[in-house]
Amino acid sequence: MSKEHTNYWWVFPGFKIEHILSGLDLPVNIAFVPEPGNKDDDPLFYVTELYGQIKSVTNDYAVHTYAQNLLDYEPSHEFPGTGESGVIGICVEPQTGDLFVSMLYKENDETKAKVVRTSSKNGLEMDSAETVIDNIPSTFMSHQIQAVTIGPDSKLYVNIGDGGAAGKSQDVNDLRGKILRLNQNGSVPWDNPYPENPVYAKGLRNPFGGVWRNSDNHLYISDNGPHKDDRIAKIKPYGNYGWPGDMRKGSLFWWHHTQAPTAMDFMQGGQFPPQFNDHLFVALFGNTYNEGRVEGKGKRIVKIELNTQATAVNSYDDFVIYTGEGPASPCGLAFGPGGLYFSDLHGEKGSGGNIYKVSVDPEKLEELIDYGNEDQYPGFWVEIREWARSKGITD
């Protein structure tokens, strides 16, 4: 672990940041094993690398190549531009440990998107793969297939960008600009909003992130706007989220200035004190390869507290901010054992992509307690102390 890397990041009071991995090749998204084993060499999480690899990371943070050469084309490496394509979304099927992965491919000079399901006996190396859905029109310039998630109904949900054809987002007979809902074998569930149609919601532009909130069993997504109005939306069946045109339609929250929101996750597993329960953490990528810190423009993770009905935002705070001089920027993000993990796509100059972990710092617990609002959270001090004792952070 490199302490030098952590010097490039500011973190919320009462927390610490640890450098877990480096040398990754454009690590896009992170997916944790729901119930990891106890052995050092048991898989802990998986990472998609944009240009055709999936890495399996074990409990001892050893990195294994789970799959490689997944692309049937040579990426242009142009950022921003046609190099923003490849292997992107990933989630773990909780019963089998199989992976659902979204990616692009070429067919007769056409760019298309698909989701594949991979299997492995040991979780370290892929044994087989089968296509779940394919033949989705796409583009190499962002706006493509992205997050894949499994809902509480055990159905597969897939985020599809508009492929650069904005008008298709309103056409329910076209899969672009949509959230799709599928059975895990790729068939269409009988109870989908549109009969014999995988479309679950429409009117989206470039929906990168997706996460399920356990307290209301709804999918929340991040969606990138054209020049303004990047947003967070709560997805409902039949939902029309306004694109092309009004990016604020159906939105829970939006940014007036573009931030490029990518992955996101709710704190709902007890990794942080109870006052952070159900807070939404969102990676704001910012400008591609923009070096150094940019005030108010991406290169950070934000913490958003929703109201009880999840219809509005109660609070918004910076949680992690990049302070270095390189092109580093958060991309993937997921809660796992003991904290919040995120991928830094570009890393410091020459270091390659990184994985970091943010957790409560026992030496800075007083900072966290002092930050608490006793009026808003009665018993804040007591609850944090009790939480810290239950986690073995304090005696």
Rank of each mutant, 00 (worst) to 15 (best):
Q268R: 11
V116Y: 08
T394C: 05
Y356N: 09
N122H: 09
D72T: 05
L180R: 00
P198Y: 02
S85C: 15
G339W: 10
L280W: 03
Y8L: 11
G347T: 07
I54L: 13
L24A: 04
I393A: 04
C91N: 08
G270L: 07
D72H: 12
G123R: 10
E35L: 10
V199D: 07
G392Y: 11
V101C: 06
H256Y: 05
A201N: 02
K297S: 03
F208V: 13
E107H: 11
D162A: 06
W243R: 05
G338K: 11
M1H: 13
G164M: 09
N7H: 13
T6G: 09
Q275P: 00
P237V: 06
P378L: 08
P207A: 09
L44H: 00
E291N: 14
D42H: 08
D134E: 14
I136H: 01
M1K: 13
D174A: 11
T118K: 05
P274D: 14
D375L: 14
D109L: 04
T311D: 07
T288F: 14
P330R: 07
G350E: 06
F253L: 11
S76I: 04
I160R: 00
R231G: 03
T149R: 12
A233S: 15
Y238S: 08
V199R: 02
P274W: 07
L365P: 02
V313H: 01
T131Y: 12
H64M: 07
C91V: 13
G167C: 01
V115F: 10
A260C: 13
P75C: 12
T323P: 03
S76H: 05
M267D: 10
N183A: 06
G52S: 11
D246L: 02
Y157N: 02
T82L: 14
L70C: 09
S56V: 09
G81M: 11
K106Y: 13
A31F: 00
A201E: 02
V148K: 09
I304T: 02
R385N: 15
D134L: 01
V63H: 08
H143W: 09
P94W: 09
A62F: 03
I321C: 05
G14Y: 03
D278T: 11
D216W: 03
E367L: 01
E367W: 05
I136G: 00
E374L: 12
A312V: 05
N38C: 00
N354Q: 15
I90S: 03
H143Y: 13
I88R: 10
D60I: 01
F15I: 10
K114Q: 15
N373L: 03
S359V: 08
L50P: 07
T139R: 03
I150Q: 08
N29Q: 12
F380L: 11
F15V: 12
E386K: 15
D278R: 11
W10H: 14
L71S: 11
Q95N: 13
Q68N: 15
P237C: 12
A233Q: 01
E78A: 13
V158Y: 04
G97Y: 12
S390P: 07
F45G: 05
C91Y: 01
K303R: 15
T288E: 15
G245Q: 12
E18W: 01
R176A: 04
R248H: 00
P244H: 09
G23C: 10
W212R: 06
G350H: 03
S359W: 07
D361G: 10
G332T: 00
K349S: 12
I90C: 10
H256S: 12
L340Q: 08
D127W: 10
E386H: 14
